[in-house]
Structures are given as structure tokens and as C-alpha cells.
Amino acid sequence: MATIDDVKKLAALARMRVGDAELAKFTSEFDAILAYVGQLEQLNLPKDLKAGKPPVRNVMREDGEPHKGGTYTEKLAEQFSAREGNALSVKQIIQHGKAFASAPRYEKTK
């Protein structure tokens, strides 16, 4: 049985926010979905499951020639939320004597 607190915790773990109205909805839907997938409990599992597992095979390969440096730089950098030159710019997260939560506000550079 899922509770509203459970769903809140899952949302925090998944780096998402769920509004109060949606919390109640998700929680009741979770109960129905988990009751359905709970039927797996009835399965009698044989001890040796190797027979059904896909065969393991070596997928290692020799390194190929890498593409020329800079080929994709501009295309990738264009998509950054904020950039400084060709660098991706993010908030500072560690400062001497200061905790993560009190990191300074981020100033957009572009």
C-alpha cells in the first residue's frame, strides 16, 4: 500500500516535485498498479534461471579512430542552459565554510 509520504519521497529521489492534488492521484493509481504487478508473487521460480537468460557474449572491440577534436563542440554547446565560451556553466556547489544549500545564487553569463 503506497502512502502520500511514500510518493513524496520517491519524487524527491527522482528530482521532481509533485503537487498536492497529483500526490493523491498518483498514490491511488500506484496502489492499483502495484496490486497488478504484485501477481508476480504467485510465480513459482525454478532455482536455475540460466536456461532463459540471453547468452552472454563478448562485445569488446578495438578502439576506432576518434573524430577530430572540436567537430561537435559548437553544436553541443549551443544546447547548454548557460555557457562561458565553450564551457558549460553551472552553479557553484562547494564553497569554503558554506553548505550546499546556501550556495550563492547563480548569475547567468549569456
Partner: peptide, 20 residues
């Protein structure tokens, strides 16, 4: 952060949470 919808918050964690 690197691509996709971005919504700024007070902290880096807020950036993630808001964007997602």
C-alpha cells in the same frame, strides 16, 4: 543543464527539480 528544458532555481538541486 546540458540540453533540454531548463528552469532556474535558487540552488543546483532546484535547477534539476524545476526543469524536470
Amino acid at each position: 543543464i546540458r540540453y533540454g528544458h531548463f528552469s532556474r532555481g535558487d540552488t543546483l538541486l532546484d535547477d534539476y527539480i524545476n526543469s524536470r
